[in-house]
Design a protein around this nucleic acid. Structure first.
Length: 648
RNA sequence: GCCGAUGUAGCUCAGAGGUAGAGCACUUCCUUGGUAAGGAAGAGGUCACGGGUUCAAUUCCCGUCAUUGGCUCCA
């Protein structure tokens, strides 16, 4: 007999060699039917693997992340089997579970897999799933494993196996299908009841651009058809929040082929919204001791040679702008920091002057690969809410803390609660990608880790994600479709001060080198607005929204009254519009609702005679009658609340 | 940049080897109305652009540009 300890502390005694499934059955038959995956002593196993010693056992159903992982990973095997049958001769590579579903990468040779084939693949998949074939794992020797795939001519699997050791190589069988796999499967294929092939895309072998491009087939599967339907409905809803769709509908921004790809055009409503965001941050920055500076959109090439940007990105940037006669080379500004360094140098600095904080909404231009451009989130011309803090080494941590506070204030005011603070460090195996001394890098990395921890941020560490001149703390937020974007960023930099020979005179009367902190709470105004649109689904906070109130006269007779009311509201700093069209109120209400106007005032005979307005709230309907002053207070109180709720 | 898909009216989309359609928006007229679409008429398109095949191409083929799902990249 063996003792099995469950996560809740309960201990079960079972015969030696019982499996995780036996443990589940000992709890209840009904529960066992839903168990699809298990861990024994924290190691993922098959639910049928015999347990030979006392152990901690955790059982998973599709409701657990671990269960989903096993379910989707197993689904990838079925997908591979289906693809092998439909496209004979393809070479299988890898097929992991991902956040939503799974994919399988294949080398399809001359054959192409197209969207029109998805139905065919799904049908074959379900046909195979219905066989209810058991998954089983068996260990094979390295020699045997290599022999199988060499015989098949599958160089990808051979490469994978060559990196494994004898004793850790297992094959997974189900039905007539065998795949190299380390395990963690559901009991049998029949548990998968619904599948959807989501898309097909190219993907490089081992994520390496210089290697072969494979065909990646994405899918998602569920134990119930209804769950798939619900998932697809949820996806449809998410698409309604897409900033590209809402940006067009709400007339915030557009693009023009004639202007060029990746170069956004802000329409009046979008531009005003963005200005409000900028003013909001400018105000906070004045309080925090920042000094505004303004720099031009181009700079001499030598500036970027000095900063190191030219060497690193010069070849993949917009190319030089030349003066017509002298042939002098200028570059479109890809970064604001070199300009700010030059501003620092205009006057000698004493240790008493530091920190100096230069802030600028600086527009920069970067050549992004055409395949990378995406709505407002990835563009070629964008504005950073950039600032550079020049401080003494002993001030770095304190300044860094204050910047984190500012970022949190900005995020809080806009309702971003769900973000991850990503600490991006240098890749120690690829030091040639970075500039600066080991000592400075270590200092900078330590400063970031210390301050992030001190602030209690939810962090992840990414090695190799640092900028070439220094490590970063990036604030990552997901868009409507679950893609992660970097918004705010804070970077510690010991390198540019050296390259630009920045100095200050210390209390010891010697010259010292300041440390730079680069920071941008929004990151890029374009990307921030994009993610904000998706975050609120186009229903902006009242202080930001393009029109706070739509005034809807019941008939054209009251247009003038409506205009007068608008003027009165304008005096309270409230913005809006009068819908003067020759339409019925019902129609005006509908259009205002669709365009997400937060408040509507219905103006008819009654309102024209009194000083009362009839108020409707977006998404809620009629909320009653108020005097104009009362209504103005409702709006202004809400605005105040939004802006001060996180002010500390 | 690479792999796949897409490009038809301002917007959302149908269509077919024989010269282009709907709804909404727009213009004009009627209607002057009380909480999510009042009625009528009209105007609007080099079917992304450039080649090729064909008696004939918006439709088929090739290229370019743009958009898009991924991959790679991201100061």
């Amino acid at each position: 007999m063996i003792k099995v300890t469950l996560p809740d502390g309960a201990v079960k005694e079972l015969p030696k060699g019982s499996s995780a499934m036996d443990v589940a059955k000992s709890i209840s038959e009904g529960f066992a039917r839903n168990v699809i995956s298990a861990k024994v002593n924290d190691k993922t196993v098959e639910v049928t693997t015999p347990i030979t010693t006392d152990a901690n056992v955790t059982l998973y159903t599709f409701d657990n992340e671990e269960g989903k992982k096993a379910f989707w990973h197993s689904s990838a095997h079925i997908l591979a089997q289906a693809l092998e049958k439909l496209y004979p001769g393809i070479k299988l590579t890898i097929g992991p579970a991902i956040e939503n579903g799974f994919y399988y990468d294949v080398d399809s040779g001359e054959q192409t897999i197209r969207e029109e084939d998805f139905k065919k693949i799904e049908d074959k998949f379900l046909e195979l799933a219905r066989e209810k074939a058991d998954f089983s794992l068996r260990e094979v020797s390295k020699a045997d494993a290599l022999a199988k795939y060499k015989a098949e001519g599958n160089e990808y699997k051979v490469e994978l196996i060559e990196n494994l050791n004898d004793g850790e190589i297992t094959f997974c069988d189900h039905s007539d299908f065998t795949d190299l796999c380390r395990g963690g499967h559901i009991p049998n294929t029949g548990i998968v009841k619904a599948v959807k092939i989501m898309n097909v895309a190219g993907a490089y072998w081992r994520a390496d651009q210089t290697k072969n491009q494979l065909v990646r087939v994405y899918g998602i599967s569920f134990p119930k058809q209804k769950m798939l339907t619900e998932y697809l409905e949820l996806l449809e809803l998410a698409k309604q929040r897409d900033h590209r769709k809402l940006g067009k509908e709400l007339e915030l921004f557009t693009f023009s082929e004639k202007v060029g790809q990746g170069l956004p055009l802000w329409l009046p409503k979008g531009a005003m919204l963005r200005e409000r965001l900028e003013n909001f941050l400018k105000k906070a920055q004045v309080k925090a001791g920042y000094l505004p500076v303004i720099t031009p959109h181009i700079g001499h090439k030598d500036l970027y040679v000095t900063s190191g940007h030219y060497e690193k990105y010069g070849a993949d940037s917009f190319q030089s702008i030349l003066t017509p006669h002298e042939g002098e080379e200028f570059l479109l500004k890809p970064m604001n920091c070199p300009h700010h360094c030059e501003i620092y140098k205009t006057s000698p600095k004493s240790y008493k002057d530091l920190p100096v904080r230069f802030a600028e909404f600086g527009t920069v231009y970067r050549y992004e690969q055409s395949g990378e451009l995406h709505g407002l989130t990835r563009v070629r011309g964008f504005t950073q809410d950039d600032a550079h803090l020049f401080c003494r080494p002993d001030q770095v941590e304190d300044e860094f803390m204050k910047v984190i506070d500012l970022v949190l204030y900005v995020f809080g005011a806009l309702g971003f609660e769900d973000f991850t603070a990503q600490i991006s460090l240098r890749d120690p195996d690829n030091k040639e990608k970075y500039i600066g001394s080991d000592e400075n890098w270590e200092k900078a990395e330590q400063a970031i880790i210390n301050t992030a921890n001190a602030k209690g941020l939810k962090t992840v560490v990414e090695t190799g994600e640092a900028a070439f001149y220094g490590p970063k703390l990036d604030f990552m937020v997901k868009d409507a479709l679950g893609r992660s974007w970097q918004l705010g960023t804070i970077q510690v930099d010991y390198n540019l001060p050296e390259r630009f020979e920045l100095e200050y005179k210390g209390s010891d009367n010697e010259m010292h080198r300041p440390v730079m902190i680069h920071r941008a709470p929004f990151g890029s105004m374009e990307r921030f607005v994009a993610v904000l649109i998706e975050h609120c689904g186009g229903n902006f906070p009242l202080w930001l929204t393009p029109d706070q109130v739509g005034i809807l006269p019941v008939s054209e007779k009251y247009n003038e009254n409506a205009q007068n009311i608008l003027k009165l509201l304008n005096n309270y700093d409230i913005r809006g519009f009068v819908d003067e069209r020759n339409e019925k109120v019902g129609r005006k209400i509908r259009d205002a609702e669709v365009s997400k106007v937060p408040f509507m005032l219905i103006i008819g005979e009654k309102e024209a005679e009194t000083n009362i307005v009839s108020v409707r709230k977006h998404g809620e309907g009629d909320i009653g009658e108020f005097s104009i002053e009362e209504f103005a207070n409702i709006i202004n109180n809400e605005v105040k609340k939004d802006l001060n709720s996180n002010n500390n």
